[in-house]
C-alpha cells in the first residue's frame, strides 16, 4: 500500500498529464469520427457574446461592400419578379409553402482548418434548429450543427464531415459534395457516373435528394474532372461561387417537410 502511494506521489505529474491527455484525445478522436460535440462548441453564451461584441465593432468597416452586395441581390430578384411570365396569384397559405427563410450574420468565420465551423448570431430563440441549411445570395455555406439561445454553429462545406447532395444543373445526375481539405476555393463532387457528359465550366447545384436544401441552389462550376480509382466514377473539382473567406449576411432555410420526409424514410426502412 505504502509503495502504491509512493508511486502515485512520485509520478503525480505524469499521471496528471496522462489523465488530461486522455481527456483531450478522447474529444479529438470523437471529433474525427462523429459530429461536433453538443456542448463543446463556440455557440455557447460566453464565446458567442465575445464574438458578437467583436463582430459589432468590426461590422462597420465593410458596410459599403455589404450594402452593395445586398443591392445587387435585390436587383437580381426584382429582375426575376418583373419578368415573370404568368402572374398566377396563389394565396400565400402556410399549407402551400415548403420552406421558410430567416436571416443571420456570420460572427465567426474559419476556413484554414480541416473541420471548419462558423458561428452565426441566430439561435433557438429565433427558432433555428439543427440541420437547417445556410446559404448566401451566391450559393451554399453549410448546415446548422448546434444551437444555443442566441447563437448557432454551422458546419461549413469546408469540413471533412460535410456531405451534401449535389447535381449537375439541368440534368438529374447527382453525387455527393465533399471537401478534401486542400483549398478553400474548391470542393469535390464525387460519385458522378462515367457516362455523364461533363464540360469544364458546367454549373453544380444542390440536388433534390436533400431534405435540407431546396433544389437548384447554386454551388459552383466545374474546374477539372478525373476518373477516380475504380475508373467508374468522376471526381470533380468544383470552384465555389462563394468566396468563403468573405461571407457575412446569410439566409437560414427551414424545410417544413423535413420531419415528414425523415419519418417516412425511417418507416420504410423499418418495414423492410
Amino acid at each position: 500500500m505504502q509503495q502504491i502511494i509512493n508511486f502515485l506521489i512520485r509520478y503525480k505529474h505524469f499521471l496528471l498529464y496522462i489523465l488530461l491527455m486522455l481527456i483531450s484525445l478522447g474529444f479529438t478522436i470523437q471529433s474525427h469520427s462523429f459530429h461536433q460535440s453538443k456542448f463543446f462548441n463556440s455557440a455557447n453564451w460566453l464565446t458567442g457574446n465575445i464574438y458578437n461584441t467583436s463582430f459589432n465593432i468590426s461590422t462597420y468597416f465593410d458596410l459599403d461592400k455589404e450594402n452593395e452586395k445586398l443591392v445587387n441581390e435585390n436587383k437580381r430578384l426584382r429582375h426575376l419578379l418583373f419578368n415573370k411570365k404568368n402572374e398566377i396569384q396563389i394565396a400565400l397559405d402556410t399549407a402551400n409553402i415548403s420552406y421558410t427563410i430567416s436571416s443571420g450574420q456570420i460572427i465567426k468565420n474559419s476556413y484554414a482548418d480541416q473541420r471548419n465551423y462558423l458561428t452565426i448570431n441566430k439561435g433557438k430563440k429565433d427558432s433555428i434548429k439543427q440541420d437547417m441549411g445556410v446559404i448566401t445570395d451566391k450559393g451554399i455555406i453549410g448546415i446548422v450543427e448546434n444551437t444555443s439561445g442566441k447563437f448557432a454553429t454551422v458546419q461549413s462545406i469546408l469540413n471533412e464531415h460535410s456531405n451534401i447532395n449535389a447535381k449537375i444543373k439541368n440534368t438529374n445526375h447527382f453525387g455527393s459534395l465533399v471537401w478534401n481539405t486542400k483549398s478553400y476555393t474548391t470542393v469535390q463532387l464525387i460519385d458522378i457516373p462515367k457516362l455523364v457528359p461533363l464540360h469544364n465550366g458546367d454549373t453544380i447545384v444542390t440536388g433534390a435528394m436533400s431534405s435540407i436544401f431546396p433544389e437548384n441552389i447554386p454551388i459552383g462550376t466545374i474546374k477539372k474532372f478525373d476518373l477516380d480509382l475504380s475508373e467508374n466514377f468522376y471526381t470533380i473539382d468544383v470552384s465555389l461561387f462563394n468566396d468563403m473567406t468573405n461571407v457575412k449576411n446569410v439566409y437560414i432555410i427551414n424545410s417544413l417537410n423535413r420531419e415528414e420526409i425523415l419519418e417516412l424514410e425511417s418507416e420504410t426502412i423499418n418495414n423492410d
Binding site: 498529464y17 488530461l20 479529438t28 463556440s42 455557447n44
Partner: peptide, 20 residues
C-alpha cells in the same frame, strides 16, 4: 482556445504536452 475555435480538444492536448 478550443471552445472559441471549435477544434474540440486539439489545443488542449498540445498545450498540456508542452506544459508537461
Amino acid at each position: 482556445i478550443d471552445f472559441f475555435s471549435d477544434t474540440m480538444a486539439l489545443h488542449a492536448a498540445s498545450t498540456t504536452t508542452i506544459a508537461y
